[in-house]
Design a protein around this nucleic acid. Sequence first.
DNA 1: TATTGTTATACTCTATAACTATA
DNA 2: TATAGTTATAGAGTATAACAATA
Lengths: 166, 166
Amino acid sequence: MAENSATDHEADRPPPFETLDHGILHEFVGMYLRVAYEVAYEDFTKRLGAEALRPGYFTILTLIVCNPRISQTQIGMASERDKSSVTIALRWMEDNGLITRYPSAQDRRTHMCVATPKGVKMQKKMEEKSLAHLTALGNAIGPERRADFIKTLKDLIHELRQADIP
Amino acid sequence: MAENSATDHEADRPPPFETLDHGILHEFVGMYLRVAYEVAYEDFTKRLGAEALRPGYFTILTLIVCNPRISQTQIGMASERDKSSVTIALRWMEDNGLITRYPSAQDRRTHMCVATPKGVKMQKKMEEKSLAHLTALGNAIGPERRADFIKTLKDLIHELRQADIP
DNA sequence: TATTGTTATACTCTATAACTATA
DNA sequence: TATAGTTATAGAGTATAACAATA
């Protein structure tokens, strides 16, 4: 046996990349959701720059600016995060002078959140800068598909949460 | 000043949850992408049970089963992960008898991945079990919107990656 | 020099569970 | 008992950068 046949030769190298078979993977939306999230996250942070907050903190700050005296539990529900995650974000924002918290006299367990002037300014600046991100996002999705796409995402979230699993 | 006025009273409690204003947040697809990913991930893992692999590892194992001798770099590109992340997954799979790796004699830098019989069996079992997940996903999205939804996700990923940011 | 894969390290985002204080 | 918030801890997912072996 002097030499490998052509078949043996092929059997000793990976298949060409273009011919890779993804099998059932095309059906799995999960991977695309993850990558789409990562790409959107990166677009947001790059466009807003290093001085800006991350998308998650921007969400929380916006909720506070739009709803003075919102409670921490409300923030958690509105932003789909656990209260423990919210606590960490709020302490950081308070330490950095973006918000103030004070307990309600009606129910001293409840901490109400209010944005400081600095916090309001930060939110406004970020909202302005984020328009470029929203435009890029809108163009990528396609204006005519936008509304339907967001609706589908919300339905997906709602339906899959309801689903009872045997 | 004996008592608080009705206005002062309101000023000392959070706004009602139903009246919360989300401001510009409706426009941000990012949050919905994150939550949708989490929900899809959870549906997958719950339906497949604790003995199964996580979605990410299932993706890699499926690529190996469908493409014997696929290289680690190819797996990284096809699954949208860095090669360092792939290395960790593959070592785990090898340690657990699901795959074998061997260097190509053509190019000894390249490690080719092949599924063991146990790995093939695992992949098949997971693929079968995952049909219920795919059905739930399909129903949640709506059969008529499915193709368009996946197409939009792919476009979003592709377009946003291309976007050059000032 | 460039590429494949490994390793050490670290970062993002998030949750669970036990706790305090209030109700 | 139940709820609001805090803390300590952990875990999933991922990447960067320096490195060895090979081309």
